[in-house]
C-alpha cells in the first residue's frame, strides 16, 4: 500500500515535471519555420525601466514589420532584471541601463557580446509648479526640500550619486525608490519636491514635471547595452529584435525619447 502510494507520487511528479517542461518550450516549435520566412514567434525582452516608453513603441513597430511575431516586455530596475536572468527567468533579450548589470549577466554566462545602443544623462525633475523653488543642484542640499532618488544599487541611483560627487554636494533623500519610474511618480504626484532622473524620463512625463538641467561638468552619463540571451528559446527572433534596436529606426525612436547615440 505504502509502496504503491510512493510510486504513484513518483509518476505524478514526473508527469508534472514533463508538463512543466512542455509549457516552457511551447515557443520552440516555431523557429524551425522561421528560417525560410524571417523570424516569427514570441520573445520576452527584459528592459530597464527608463526604456519603458521607447521600447514599447519599438516593440509595436517591430511587430508591425514582422507579422507573426510578438514581443513582450518586462520593465524594471536593471539590477533586479539582471538578478532575475541569472536566476533563470525566461528572457530572450536584456537591455540594461548600465554596463555593470549587463556585465553581471555576461559573467554568469547568460549573454555574450553586448552592444551599446544609447546614452542617457541625468536631469533634476520637479513637479510642474516647483513648490520648493528648486533651480539648481545646490538647492537639493536644503533640508526642507524633499528629494527622492533611485536606490543606490539601481543604475539611476548610481548616476545620481555620481552627479552629487561631481558637484561636491551631499544630498539626503527622503526615499530611495526601487526604480526610475517610481522615483518619477513621486514627483508627478507632487509628493516630493525634486528628484534626479534621466533626461528621457523628464521628457516622457510631459508637462507634469519640469526638468532642470545639470551642468555638463557635473553630469553623469550612462551607457545602455543590449544583448540576446543564451537561454533564449527563440534566438533568431531575439537577435532580430536586437538588430532592430541598433538599426536607424531604433536609433531614431530612441532619439525622440531623448537618448543620445553612444
Amino acid at each position: 500500500m505504502r509502496r504503491n502510494t510512493f510510486s504513484a507520487v513518483a509518476v505524478l511528479a514526473a508527469a508534472t515535471l514533463s508538463l512543466a517542461a512542455c509549457g516552457g518550450s511551447s515557443s520552440s516549435g516555431t523557429p524551425s519555420a522561421s528560417s525560410s520566412s524571417g523570424p516569427s514567434g514570441e520573445i520576452t525582452v527584459f528592459a530597464a525601466a527608463s526604456l519603458t516608453g521607447s521600447f514599447t513603441n519599438l516593440g509595436k513597430a517591430f511587430e508591425a514589420e514582422n507579422p507573426g511575431t510578438k514581443v513582450t516586455f518586462s520593465f524594471g530596475p536593471s539590477s533586479g532584471l539582471a538578478e532575475q536572468i541569472d536566476q533563470g527567468a525566461p528572457a530572450d533579450v536584456f537591455a540594461s541601463a548600465a554596463t555593470k548589470n549587463m556585465d553581471q549577466v555576461v559573467e554568469a554566462g547568460n549573454a555574450s557580446n553586448p552592444v551599446a545602443f544609447a546614452n542617457n544623462t541625468m536631469e533634476i525633475a520637479v513637479p510642474a509648479d516647483n513648490p520648493a523653488g528648486v533651480d539648481s543642484l545646490d538647492d537639493l542640499t536644503n533640508k526642507d526640500v524633499k528629494v527622492v532618488l533611485c536606490a543606490q544599487d539601481v543604475p539611476c541611483g548610481v548616476s545620481a550619486r555620481a552627479v552629487f560627487k561631481n558637484a561636491g554636494i551631499t544630498v539626503t533623500p527622503v526615499s530611495n525608490e526601487v526604480d526610475v519610474k517610481s522615483t518619477l511618480s513621486k514627483i508627478t504626484l507632487g509628493e516630493a519636491d525634486a528628484g534626479l532622473v534621466y533626461v528621457t524620463d523628464v521628457k516622457a512625463a510631459g508637462d507634469k514635471v519640469s526638468g532642470i538641467e545639470i551642468p555638463a561638468d557635473d553630469n553623469a552619463t550612462t551607457t545602455y547595452p543590449i544583448a540576446s540571451l543564451k537561454n533564449s528559446k527563440n534566438a533568431d527572433l531575439a537577435q532580430a529584435f536586437v538588430d532592430y534596436v541598433l538599426s536607424d529606426k531604433g536609433t531614431a525612436e530612441l532619439g525622440t525619447a531623448g537618448f543620445s547615440k553612444p
Partner: peptide, 8 residues
C-alpha cells in the same frame, strides 16, 4: 513602498 517610500 508606494505610500511611505523607502529610506533606512
Amino acid at each position: 513602498i508606494t505610500f511611505a517610500g523607502n529610506f533606512p
